[in-house]
């Protein structure tokens, strides 16, 4: 018996994750099944819809498998959202393993109705700006794009002016100076050409990065259930903690590549020292408190989840 599984995702085929994680995963599964599982890869939302619809496309069986950013549907995964809080995760490998374990223990119910293959994070987010950010003072009044509400909140607490803007608009806005900077991990910088548009990149000495986004590699439940047992076993062998960790490592490799481009371009790479980093961590605390209050409004114990998330990260370090 042969099956064809369709994988839909939002980035071009040559981007870090599609080329470095998803396609190799598909090839590996296909080989282990001796060709009985075939994959059709649909990059760049080719089968239609907006990226925010991907999760439902997997849930409803529009396609068999999707790779998506969980933050694209704010409000839908409140308990998993804790990983987006500032200074949570050090890198893709550790963050991904921790995130997978955390979800399985604390928020698996948010993924009811789908079959989870992998859950992962990207590497540490950092600042990319026209003018150098050497101290907490430097960011005051800067127009900075933040990718989520938590990041925008934090930017406002830090004294910057958060500009909410979709990723595709960022290149255009950055190149003309409509915004002064943006927060993305290194991995994303080559595709939106950040290193050409700005000359300053500011990261942190802390073992944790400024912020993290979370991703899901998700399969339709029926597509999984309908597989014969031996093929299910092959999918199972290529799911879970180690695949999540592997996806995170691909993110880290992408980060290294992005960093190298900026270094080769002769850009100014700032590493804030311990004392400065602590100032930023302190300044981010109101954002975390606000998130606790938000969660309390929904009857969720945010503090407990936060502690669980920190413990999950610590366990991997």
């Amino acid at each position: 018996q042969e099956v064809t599984l369709r994988i839909h995702q939002f980035l071009p085929a040559q981007a870090t994750m599609p080329a470095g994680a998803i396609e190799p995963w598909a090839n590996k599964v296909s080989e282990e099944s001796e060709g009985r599982i075939k994959f059709e890869l649909y990059p760049a939302m080719q089968l239609g819809g907006a990226p925010a619809e991907l999760y439902d496309q997997a849930k409803d069986g529009v396609v068999d498998i999707v790779w998506t950013v969980l933050g694209y549907t704010p409000g839908r995964f409140p308990k998993s959202e804790v990983f987006e809080l500032p200074f949570m995760s050090p890198n893709g490998e550790i963050g991904s393993a921790a995130f997978y374990n955390y979800v399985m223990a604390n928020s698996a119910d948010e993924f009811a109705g789908v079959h989870v293959i992998a859950l992962h994070t990207h590497g540490p987010g950092l600042f990319h700006s026209k003018d150098p950010i050497n101290t907490l003072e430097d960011i005051k009044g800067m127009k900075v794009r933040g990718g989520s509400r938590i990041i925008s909140d934090m930017l406002a607490n830090l004294g910057a002016e958060p500009i909410g803007m979709p990723v595709p608009q960022t290149t255009e806005a950055l190149s003309k100076g409509v915004i002064d900077g943006t927060t993305v991990p290194w991995e994303v910088t080559p595709s939106i050409r950040v290193a050409e548009l700005v000359t300053n990149h500011t990261g942190f000495t802390s073992q944790y990065g400024l912020y993290t986004q979370t991703f899901g590699f998700i399969m339709n439940q029926d597509s999984y259930n309908n597989l014969p047992d031996d093929l299910k076993a092959i999918i199972d062998a290529n799911s879970g903690l180690e695949v999540s960790r592997q996806f995170g490592m691909v993110m880290d490799e992408g980060d290294a590549r992005g960093l190298k481009i900026a270094v080769d371009a002769g850009n100014n790479i700032v590493q804030l020292d311990e004392a400065q980093t602590q100032l930023w961590i302190d300044a981010a605390q109101p954002t975390i408190d606000k998130w606790f209050a938000d969660m309390e409004g929904q009857g969720i114990d945010g503090k407990a989840l936060y502690d669980a998330a920190r413990a999950a990260v610590a366990a991997e370090m």
Partner: peptide, 10 residues
């Protein structure tokens, strides 16, 4: 049912 919101304004 899923209580999805927009990114910034919620």
């Amino acid at each position: 049912a899923y209580k999805e919101t927009t990114l910034l304004l919620r």
